[in-house]
Design a protein around this nucleic acid. Structure first.
Length: 459
DNA sequence: ACTAGTGGAG
């Protein structure tokens, strides 16, 4: 007879779920929760399990699903704790709803429903930094310093990294130097952010000084740190040193990953040494690492710059065979290359090739390139037609470049073309939001097809 | 046990 095993303690389940989450398997964690609930009807799910589920929903289906679970939680008589709310705040930030996240945070502060802890503060700081509000994050840091919830290394690191990315490396250095006074110690993450920032601004000497300082304080570099250093070397054209970094990390049993090799490959591409870049690519694969779309983009970009079209096309075609999908970076590399129209399908005629390319440029926001090709296509013996005009005009309007659009509209009308359906509706959209701009009015009037009555309806 | 911060192409 089958004897029922004792119910696993809920803490055991939660612990297992924790390690599944660390690997990013949110769907697995969710189905595990559901299975356990069905398997053991009487199992007592606690607030942590709910929080894990909310977190999974936030990552898988969006924060709205997470919020709806909060309702269930209330209905069953549970009281959400600070972690639950932090999870939701993080969910909002993940979905680019940082203003709502800040609102929720403020509301919790106001109603004193929850006493925010350092993680909740850190989550808000992260949200502010990610949305270009680093200065507001610094203000929040000051508030924390004066209050009872003191900032920790994570909060400082988040802001230091953001300052570096906002090109305020000096301010990052200043903030860094105040950490010591407060007895908050930088870790490898703090140093990585700062050294990355210094490398990006060519302050190689200062970067190496910081690295030595870190080693002296007994902090061990990890794969992130070594990759940043290697990348810094290649940006300085120091390929020998970059290879040296790779050797050192292998020696010290820090395994390089695909990011490390990509950085090295990009360095060789920058030097125009495509043979070396390919050698690195092969070494990476030999070491059992999988190339990603970045690896391909780096090489395609390198070949395009060297006018090696066959090699670039070959790699481009290899992407799907490796189960990889070209992304914006791939198209960007191709579009900037001198042979970009060659990548397009064989049955595209010259006209279609140019128009497709122009559309690609517009979608990438590369209007200057779009205009260049637009001018060039006439020299290539290929007159733009109504589709070409509509494509490029849509591009300029999309980037709110009304005056450039106006010139093109006049040209188009002169040649006897008019706006297509998609552009007409686009114009109506703009009219409803920005109709008061006289310059835009001018564009719109010329742009619309002969039956201008739809404009009057709106006016 | 659950929640926040670090690296790479264009």
């Amino acid at each position: 007879m089958l004897r029922m095993r004792p119910l696993p303690p809920i803490s055991q389940l939660n612990k297992a779920l924790g390690s599944i989450l660390k690997m990013g398997h949110y769907a697995t964690a969710l189905s595990l929760i559901q299975n356990k609930l069905q398997q053991f009807q009487g199992i007592q799910v606690n607030i942590c399990t709910f929080c894990i589920a909310i977190n999974c929903y936030c990552y898988l289906n969006g924060v709205d699903f997470g919020l709806s679970l909060l309702g269930t939680l209330f209905k069953r008589g549970y009281t959400p704790d600070v972690t639950t709310f932090t999870t939701l705040i993080n969910g909002l930030i993940l979905q680019d709803k940082t203003p709502q996240a800040v609102e929720l945070f403020k509301k919790l502060m106001r109603t004193r429903e929850i006493e925010p802890d350092v993680v909740m503060y850190g989550t808000i700081v992260n949200g502010l930094c990610r949305t270009g509000n680093t200065i507001r994050a610094v203000s929040l840091l000051r508030i924390m310093e004066e209050g009872s919830c003191k900032p920790n290394t994570v909060v400082y690191s988040t802001i230091i990294d953001s300052l570096c990315k906002d090109r305020m490396v000096d301010d990052a250095l200043k903030l860094f130097s105040t950490m010591d006074e407060k007895g908050i110690f930088p870790n490898v993450v703090t140093y990585t952010s700062l050294i990355h920032g210094l490398c990006n601004f060519g302050q190689w000497k200062e970067a190496t000084r910081m690295f030595k300082e870190m080693l002296d304080s007994g902090i061990a570099p990890d794969v992130h740190m070594y990759s940043v250093l290697l990348d810094g070397c290649t940006k300085e054209g120091k390929m020998k040193e970059a290879e040296g970094v790779l050797e050192v990390m292998i020696q010290r049993n820090v395994d390089p990953n695909v990011v490390t090799y990509n950085a090295l490959m990009d360095g060789y591409c920058l030097q125009g040494q495509m043979d070396e870049a390919i050698r690195v690519f092969n070494t990476m694969v030999d070491r059992g690492l999988r190339s990603n779309v970045f690896s391909y983009n780096i090489l395609i970009n390198g070949y395009c710059k060297k006018m090696k079209i066959d090699e670039a096309v070959h790699l481009f075609r290899e992407l799907p065979r490796r189960g990889l999908k070209p992304d914006n970076g791939t198209f960007s590399a191709i579009l900037r290359g001198p042979f970009s129209i060659t990548f397009l399908p064989r049955d595209y005629n010259l006209m279609l090739r140019h128009t497709t390319m122009i559309q690609g440029f517009c979608e990438e926001g590369l209007l200057r390139e779009a205009k260049e090709l637009f001018v060039k296509m006439e020299h290539n013996g290929c007159l733009p037609n109504d589709v070409t005009y509509n494509t490029i005009i849509r591009g300029f309007i999309g980037q709110h470049k009304c005056y450039e659009a106006l010139i093109l509209v006049e040209e188009m009308v002169q040649r006897g073309f008019s706006a297509d359906a998609s552009n007409s509706s686009l114009v109506i959209d703009i009219l409803s939001t920005k109709g008061q701009d006289p310059a835009l009015q001018e564009v719109i009037k010329k742009f619309m097809p002969k039956d201008g009555h739809r404009i009057q309806e709106i006016e």
